[in-house]
Design a protein around this nucleic acid. Sequence first.
DNA 1: ATTGTCCTCGGTCTAGAGACCGAGGAACTC
DNA 2: GAGTTCCTCGGTCTCTAGACCGAGGACAAT
Lengths: 221, 221
Amino acid sequence: MNSSDKIKVMIVDDHDMVRIGLRTYLMLEPRLDIIAEAGNGKEALQWLEARKEEEHPDIILMDMMMPEMDGIEATRSVMAKFPAIKIVMLTSFLEDDKVYAAIEAGAVSYVLKTVSAEELIYAINGAFKGMPVMTADVSQALTRGLRQRTAQSGDEDLTEREKEVLLLIADGLSNKEIAEELHISIKTVKTHVSNLLMKCEMEDRTQLAVLAHRKGWAKRA
Amino acid sequence: MNSSDKIKVMIVDDHDMVRIGLRTYLMLEPRLDIIAEAGNGKEALQWLEARKEEEHPDIILMDMMMPEMDGIEATRSVMAKFPAIKIVMLTSFLEDDKVYAAIEAGAVSYVLKTVSAEELIYAINGAFKGMPVMTADVSQALTRGLRQRTAQSGDEDLTEREKEVLLLIADGLSNKEIAEELHISIKTVKTHVSNLLMKCEMEDRTQLAVLAHRKGWAKRA
DNA sequence: ATTGTCCTCGGTCTAGAGACCGAGGAACTC
DNA sequence: GAGTTCCTCGGTCTCTAGACCGAGGACAAT
């Protein structure tokens, strides 16, 4: 533990030009050292797994929207395997539920891509000390996201099957289509849907779909 | 008109780090000269209007998603007032209808932010000659976008009232609740819903809600 | 004046959604 | 063995959703 050591940073973003921009940003702060880059979450994980923990970065600048494996999922995986790494989530947009999802996944900070170099460096320094740095708009989005979370009790007490059904509902499938997709009776689907409605305190499948999308559970394709 | 003149480029993007990355990209090609930058379409227009045409750029690299005035709208305005300028649209995502909208607005090329420096320079050189440069994925999206348009396109040919109803559906409201919210009969709501289902080529309100969320139309709170 | 679009509202009808009742089997825990 | 949870499936019921039919008034464009 040498306090004079540089902060090792890894950049994960699918856009080459953004990575270049970030590199230029971080070159302004001599204490920062960019030791690795990756084009998506999968690449980042593979890079980390192929190396010893001593070679790992202190900070990962993680883009939210990426092909293969997005920032949320990648953050979850990285935190599960290498909890020592601090992750700063980078994004272009401010979506309440995404902010919450990022924090829940284990990200220390959540930074908009509109930041200046100084702000980003400040956020990285803060993250290195384990201190989340939030701009006003982000923290507002977070509280809104939290309100949504705490509002409905049924968070993760859904069974695996129920989660499957919920995702299909969030994809716009009817009960019949879900039954065919899962190779079960339409009656069983109805049972799951009823349980979902009860647990999530929703009134119909449309509200379930909305819920899933707001929480970021639904697939984007 | 000197053929040895440099190609004058203007960069319009709300992300400082992307602008830095783009500058670094374009510095690789000495024939390119970055003469201006702007953070959104409005700024870009103001900059152009405040200067003589001789000082105008040959090429504008225009980001699609921006605050104040987005890339589509800005392209339309620029083309209306300064048709000599060639616009290369830059974007992070590949949405079929957006590609079409960009071309329709007057953009010469449509380039993903995942491009390398060489590809971008190639696209700029092509645009300078008035030749659209498309990667395979973009041109596929364009044809798909065209198919959607010519077929029916569930895009923006919705009436104001229909958009209102769609947003409420995307919020999880029932027909009865929508009727109360808008102070109209439940019968009228049903009419709007039926029209929405037809125009958007969806089968039920849940799919409408999913569509709205995927397109980013739905409100978050 | 005519055409067209939009918003409004009504009736009827069918199919799906969802509530509520039941139950059996599998897997796990104590 | 007893209890629990989960997944499965059935019947019956009510209610909403949505399709399809109609129509009238407001408003703008030509």
